[in-house]
Amino acid sequence: MSKILIVAEHADDVLNPSTAKCVACASEIPDAEIHVVVVAANASPIAAEAASLTSVTQVLCIDNPLNVSQLAAIVAPQVVAMAEGYSHIFGPSTTFGRDLMPRVAALLGVNQVSDIMEVLGSHSFKRPVYAGNAIVTVEAPANLPLVATVRVASYRSVPDGGNATINSIEVESQSPEHTRLIELQAGKSDRPDLQTAAKVVAGGRALGSEEKFQLIFQLADTLGAGVGATRAAVDAGYVPNELQVGQTGKIIAPELYVAIGISGAIQHLTGIKDAGTIVAINKDPDAPIFEVADIGLVGDLFAIIPELQAALSG
């Protein structure tokens, strides 16, 4: 039997949807008992959310004021203190999980499986390499704790409906004084979150300026969509970094992805491969984005967007 511990991701007392996706991955492992650990300064509201996730049987809370900061140096030792008895320890492949989980793995003296996209067995998985241009089947040693991150774009959140028990745990933890959180500058937006939005409208460098990128925001608002961007658009300063989609940005899997003025560099395409339907609008008929698009439209985006806007509003 596998006993799986999932490290909850949260902010502002709310559970991040990445946790429910980790649970979805873990529940594909045969004969698994799934627990969630909430390392937080105020764990109870987060624990209540985690306890309602289908397949979770136990939620463990580590409450400590120092957990206001979710820095890896602070969280990792607490996870490690809990690790005894678990065959698997999972976290999400978000920046939180990618920062934290290798530190957990190293403290446990094991390697890590990054970005699980498919479960083949309790210790056998598929994961993408080379920006998704190859998929490798990996096998982790069965006699060691298995630390992994789950590629969140590959999984749909498990629904609510669980009724796990919630237990408080005391672990000895010291604040590592060598690392101090100064400030978190979170982008404020009322739009759907890029990583969980069902629809995403994204723009590239062809938009030409921060002002003109507003066209993308307006179209997104009409569609009730989140907004994404290419690295080039972020580098050019049209939008902040948290909107970047791709190998080094966010890997997303919306039902609808509308790529506007995006040529389709490999590094960008790797971020949208799991999208349900990809729409590409680009003036260059040879742009690589059309190779992966389900619906393609060649033309000038500055003419097309207002027309599309009108058609959708009408």
């Binding site: 690392t179 101090r180 400030e183 978190l184 500058q185 982008g187």
Partner: peptide
């Protein structure tokens, strides 16, 4: 300054 999912996180390290 770290690029994280929600934006930017600024930390000080020894």
């Amino acid at each position: 300054t770290r690029e994280v999912d929600v934006g930017l996180e600024i930390i000080e390290i020894d």
